[in-house]
Design a protein around this nucleic acid. Structure first.
Lengths: 131, 131
DNA sequence: TAATGATATTCATGAATTTGAATATTATGT
DNA sequence: ACATAATATTCAAATTCATGAATATCATTA
C-alpha cells in the first residue's frame, strides 16, 4: 500500500484537520444564520422557522450538522427544543469574517414573525398586558 | 417556477453567502497549512513543497482555490512565484478557531527542508558565510 | 392509549469537492 | 529556437454535500 510514502504530508496537514472541520460546518449560509439567531442566547426551533422562513426539516438538518460538530447543544423543554452555542468564541470567528467581507449582517430577529411556542405566547401576552 | 415561494428564505440566508464562501475555502487542512506558511510574509511555492511534503500539482491546486477566493495574491519573480496573504485579518480567524480547538499548531517552518529557489540558496550561502 | 404539536431522521438525487495523473504554460539560460 | 526549472491547468473517478419528500420520534394532552 506504500502508506509511508505520504507520511510526511499527512503529518504536516493532520494538525489542521480539527480547524478545517469547524470551517466546514460554518461554510453554509443557513448554518451561519442559525448561529446569528443564537447570538443573544438560546432559542427554540420554531423561532428559527419563523425568522428564516425555511421549512422545519431543512432547519433540523442544518441543526444536526451544527450539533454533531459540537458547536451547538440542545435542551428539551416540553414540546420545544432549545438550542444554544457551546462556545461563544464561535461568534468571534463570525465577527472577524464579517469584517473581512464588509457585508452588513442583518438583524435576524427583526423579521417580525411570531411562532406559537409557549415562550413566544407568554412574551406576546406580557407585551399586550404591559402596553 | 414559483420562485417567490422561497424569497423569504433566500433573502434571509443570502447575506451570509460571502462569509460562507470564505469558510468553505478555509475548510481544508492543506489550505490552512499553506496560510500558516504565509504567516510571516510571502513565500514561493517551492517552500510549500518542502515544508508540507506534498506534490507540486496538489499544492498548486490548493493555491488556486485560495487565489481565486482573493485570500492570497501572487507575484512572479523570475522562475518563482511568491504568494502572500491579501488581508492579514484572515490570521485572526485562524487564531480564534485554533484556540477553540485547543490543538497546538505546529511550526510549519521547522521542517528542516530546503528548496533550491534563489532566495533559499542565498539564505544558505549567507548563513554558511556568517556561521 | 390515541391524537397532536414540535422536532428529527431517512432516503434519493443532483451538484460540488477531492485528489491523482497527465499535460500545459511561462520565464530563463544557452 | 531549444532545453530546463517552476508552477499551473485539465481531466476523470471517487467521495461528499445539499436539499426536497416522506416518514419517524418524542413529549404532551385528552
Amino acid at each position: 500500500m506504500n502508506l509511508n510514502i505520504m507520511s510526511a504530508a499527512i503529518s504536516a496537514i493532520q494538525p489542521f484537520e480539527a480547524q478545517a472541520q469547524i470551517f466546514k460546518v460554518l461554510s453554509h449560509p443557513a448554518r451561519i444564520a442559525i448561529l446569528e439567531i443564537l447570538r443573544d442566547g438560546e432559542e427554540c426551533v420554531c423561532h428559527m422557522e419563523a425568522y428564516l422562513g425555511l421549512r422545519q426539516a431543512y432547519i433540523s438538518q442544518q441543526l444536526a450538522v451544527l450539533r454533531e460538530s459540537g458547536i451547538i447543544q440542545d435542551r428539551r423543554d416540553g414540546w420545544n427544543i432549545f438550542y444554544r452555542v457551546t462556545d461563544p468564541r464561535i461568534f468571534e470567528v463570525l465577527d472577524v469574517v464579517q469584517r473581512i467581507t464588509g457585508i452588513e449582517v442583518p438583524d435576524v430577529h427583526q423579521a417580525g414573525f411570531h411562532c406559537t411556542c409557549p415562550r413566544c405566547m407568554t412574551e406576546q401576552q406580557v407585551t399586550n398586558e404591559e402596553g
